[in-house]
Amino acid sequence: MSMLELKGVTKNFGGIVACKDISLSVAPGQIAGLIGPNGAGKTTVFNLITGVYSPTAGSISFAGRDITAIRPDKVVTHGIARTFQNIRLFRNLTVLDNVRIAVDKEVDYALGEALVRSPRVKSREREICALAMEHLEEVGLADKAEVRADSLPYGLQRKLEIARALALRPRLLLLDEPAAGMNPEESLELAGLVRILHARHDLTILLIEHHMDVVMELCEKIFVLDFGVKLAEGTAEEIQTNPEVLRAYLGEGYKRVRSQ
């Protein structure tokens, strides 16, 4: 059985076809990659899965349930969380508050109680804080808890986004270019972090990435998109030797460069 399955998903924006008849399936516990040149429709696939757009045709299912054209705020109840290509943190809030907002859905108290700040609310708030701190510790941001999110360095902002997504306790994590703007060392460190989190939280991960070292290192299965169409899928080895992929994305010189 597959965890996430897209069947013949098509998305048109007016006359432009962003995704055309895309089918892909990710098995439970897998780390899968989504690669392809800019404008290939990778982020559109994420937006379709998370209900930001609804598909023109086709269906999307998650853990056996249909989630086609789901409302974005319901996605998390199914156990899906994501990060964004162009970091979308709550910029003016502290690092801790960013994660607290994600933790909030776990600890429920009523509006009436909140308005008079009952003792129950106070103790729940303390729990929320403690949980949020745990999530920050995981990505190594605990000491930055009181810093404003937009004053963090770029790499740490990406990590904060991951912490915030994990705080939603997802089963499927969608990472949109988690290593963008990082140098090779940083991106490999990030790959290590993703691997640790994957094992610890029993996650299924689908990630979009342009750093091929990260993709090849992490992903058991890779999907290649080009102009909104799925060009190929397979293991890292298969993708690297696929002539079409080499021509469309990796470049003919890819093998040679890597073997040097």
Binding site: K74, V75, F90, R91, L168
Partner: peptide
């Protein structure tokens, strides 16, 4: 950021 907020449920 309302897009991110929606993803938080």
């Amino acid at each position: 950021d309302f897009v991110a907020a929606e993803m938080m449920g």
